[in-house]
Amino acid sequence: MKLSNIELPGPFYDKAEVCESILRALPQWFKKETALIQYLTEMERLPTLLAVVDNECVGFITFKQHNEYAAELYIMGVHPEYHRQGIGRALVNRVESILRQQSIEYWQVKTLASSHSDTFYAQTRAFYFSMGFRPLEVFTQLWGEDNPCMLMVKRL
């Protein structure tokens, strides 16, 4: 497998349609239909990069800029057949390069906190740690008591 490109889709590219199939292939993370639909809706208006292998989109990352200093990794997905092959890392690195060019200082991501026993999100947190993100705070009211939200940050 060779990652052939990370690209911004053109103006006539339906990001949500392409990325929906990836999200649906990841039910361990994206099983709530209302949340999935919300992600797809937001994705249409936010910058999204696609990871392409052999002319097929196998991963994506969507981010949002909150202000002149901070941006957020809003959602990312890599098709399970391509996990652990460097695609997620390449996507994060590419966005960080873009953000640095815009003089963004802080990069954040929200994920399920370690106090929750979900093993799939334990993998997610391990990935973010490996990318240099560090936990800042846990919010129990943002997603509800049963889904504590950990805010992780990285100084660019």
Rank of each mutant, 00 (worst) to 15 (best):
P47C: 12
K2E: 10
T48F: 05
Q123Y: 12
Y39E: 08
K15S: 13
A51K: 00
T111Q: 02
N55M: 11
F129Y: 15
S130H: 15
V109D: 03
E145H: 11
A35I: 11
L40G: 05
Y106F: 14
W29L: 13
N147L: 13
E42F: 01
M152S: 10
E17R: 06
Y82A: 02
L46S: 07
S103F: 09
A51H: 00
Y121L: 10
E42T: 02
Q38K: 09
L40R: 07
R134K: 15
D118S: 15
F12Q: 10
L3S: 09
P11N: 13
F139N: 14
M131C: 15
R134F: 10
F133M: 15
T62D: 08
L112M: 05
T34C: 12
Y74N: 05
I104A: 03
L99C: 10
A122W: 11
G10M: 13
F127V: 13
K64V: 11
M1F: 06
R100A: 09
N5Y: 06
E33K: 10
T48I: 05
D54V: 07
A90T: 02
P11Q: 12
I6F: 00
A35S: 14
T124S: 15
V95M: 10
I61N: 03
K2L: 13
Q102S: 12
L23F: 06
P148C: 09
A25W: 01
T111N: 04
I37G: 02
Q38V: 04
G77V: 03
I104L: 08
Y69D: 15
S21W: 01
W107D: 05
R45T: 10
A70I: 15
P80T: 04
I104H: 03
H83S: 05
I6S: 00
L91P: 00
L3D: 11
E137C: 13
N93I: 03
T111L: 02
H79N: 12
T124F: 12
M152V: 06
L99D: 08
L40H: 04
S130L: 13
Y74S: 04
K31I: 05
T111E: 02
Q102M: 13
E81V: 08
R94P: 00
Q65S: 14
A25I: 00
